[in-house]
């Protein structure tokens, strides 16, 4: 069973997040505003190597880039 999104390098969590976002956006306005706050994510992260902290990056951008890099590797 091959999934199209798996081939595009998207993880299951990302797949869920996208689906959830679509549902939230299709809600009525009053409910939508409330629901969209639950979907916000504004984290930063840094990779560490040899005891040194790397550059602080936005998690959302990095996740997207990493998944693009993984595209095509797994079926």
């Amino acid at each position: 069973m091959a999934f199209a999104w798996k081939a595009a390098g998207i993880t299951y969590n990302r797949y869920l997040a996208v689906a959830a976002r679509v549902v939230r956006r299709s809600l009525k306005d009053d409910k939508r505003l409330q629901a969209e706050r639950r979907g916000e994510m504004d984290l930063r992260f840094a990779k560490w190597e040899g005891g040194k902290q790397g550059e602080n990056k936005s998690l959302a951008d990095a996740n997207q880039a990493d998944m693009a890099a993984h595209a095509g590797q797994s079926q």
């Binding site: 993880t11 969590n13 990302r14 869920l16 997040a17 959830a20 639950r38 979907g39 916000e40 994510m41 504004d42 984290l43 930063r44 992260f45 840094a46 990779k47 560490w48 005891g51 902290q53 602080n56 998690l59 959302a60 990095a62 996740n63 990493d66 998944m67 993984h70």
Partner: peptide, 27 residues
């Protein structure tokens, strides 16, 4: 330490936070 995350704890954590962290960990 391999990864560190910042920006958590401003508000009640959302599931999107958890998902994004889980993604980065599984990658």
């Amino acid at each position: 330490i391999v990864l560190s995350f910042a920006g958590i704890g401003k508000d009640v954590p959302t599931f999107s936070d958890a998902q994004a962290i889980a993604d980065q960990i599984s990658l």
